[in-house]
């Protein structure tokens, strides 16, 4: 008895759905531009397992009512059957008119999951109680749907397969609300693309080719802005003028004064000088360096074949570099 109750009751009936119906539908799908509205004619509907069970229940009741010539039994049976039929239309209405307004995603590295943010909108007064959106080729999880009233955000994780722009796979928009007897679904192939940075090489394999700015290089000197930034241990080669003599008796080891400017290290990353087995491996290594350098105050630039991104810092720069790496060699 327990086994029976444990069975998943909301799965679509049998294995029909994965079969010829989907194939037939998929042949007619073309990419759609967002915002996209669910078309009434493109909504498909089938009973769930629970729905089939409910149908069997009605059938058993019908036979019982016939056998006992029981009018109230007939009334209940017909009421339940009618509830089933009506709820089919309600389930259908959950989807019709629903709008997928936008899909946004932050770029991620290949190998990581991108969090897609889907904004779903509903017109009218139909309470949309359980909209599920998932990729058509992944088995549906039992949750999480959204209640769309009147607009909702939904998250979906997507693992891009290759660096550069990745088209989104087919999405299923489905609902079993309100009764769970039927499941309506439709497909959408959004023309949204997700940018994937190259796969990150393992950290610490080889350090980025950083070099400190030479004293004589005037290009990045900022006159009048020498600000004392702190002390660090003396390293052989430091200028004697920089030694912080006052602290010497206390610390026993010489300390060197550090200044914010003039000490700005910089780093040029060059595809041609990057070790790696193949292009993708080298791009991965570069991506790793970009990510690592973005954490430091080092200004870095990038040379990719004939293209060059100048020395800079900051998140926008990091993105510029990574997306250049992502799309390297892909723009025909």
């Amino acid at each position: 008895m327990r086994g029976l109750f444990r069975r998943r009751l909301t799965k679509p009936a049998a294995g029909i759905r994965r079969g010829w119906i989907d194939r037939w539908i998929l042949r007619r799908i073309t990419p759609s531009t967002l915002p996209w509205t669910v078309n009434r004619r493109r909504v498909y509907i089938l009973p769930t397992r629970f729905g089939v069970g409910f149908g069997l229940l009605c059938l058993v009741m019908l036979l019982g009512a016939m056998n006992y010539a029981n009018s109230m039994g007939f009334a209940l049976t017909f009421l339940l059957a009618a509830i089933g039929l009506v709820s089919m239309h309600h389930t259908h209405a959950q989807l019709v008119g629903l709008r997928l307004v936008e899909i946004a995603a932050d770029p991620v590295h290949v190998g990581a999951d991108a969090a897609l943010r889907l904004r779903v909108d509903q017109p009218g007064k139909v309470g949309r109680l359980g909209i599920q959106i998932h990729f058509a080729d992944t088995p549906r999880a039992d949750g999480p749907g959204v209640t769309v009233a009147p607009s909702a955000q939904l998250r979906l994780s997507f693992a891009p397969g290759q660096r550069g722009w990745n088209a989104l796979p087919l999405l299923t928009v489905a609902s079993a609300a309100p009764t769970g007897l039927f499941r309506a679904w439709t497909f959408v192939l959004p023309d949204t693309r997700v940018l994937a940075y190259p796969r990150l090489a393992r950290a610490g394999q080889s350090p980025p080719p950083t070099r400190a700015l030479e004293q004589g290089d005037a290009r990045h000197r900022q006159p009048g802005l020498s600000q004392f930034a702190g002390l660090r241990n003396y390293v052989r080669g430091d200028s004697l003028q920089r030694i912080h003599w006052k602290s010497l008796p206390k610390t026993r080891t010489p300390m060197v004064k550090q200044f914010e400017d003039g000490e700005q290290p910089e780093c040029w990353l060059d595809l041609a000088l990057t070790p790696g087995a193949d292009l993708d491996a080298r791009l991965s290594q570069l991506a790793r360096w970009v990510v690592d350098l973005a954490e430091t105050p080092v200004a870095f630039g990038l040379r990719l074949g004939g293209d060059q991104i100048d020395l800079d810092r900051g998140p926008a720069h990091r993105h510029r570099c990574l997306s250049a790496l992502a799309q390297f060699g892909q723009r025909a």
Binding site: L80, I131, D142, G143, P144, T179
Partner: peptide
């Protein structure tokens, strides 16, 4: 009959949509 069926159906809607929305 009406009271119970409305109640049970309401419960069905509730459990189903609650499950969907968490």
């Amino acid at each position: 009959l009406l009271v119970t069926v409305v109640g049970v159906t309401g419960l069905l809607v509730e459990v189903n949509t609650r499950a969907a929305t968490g």
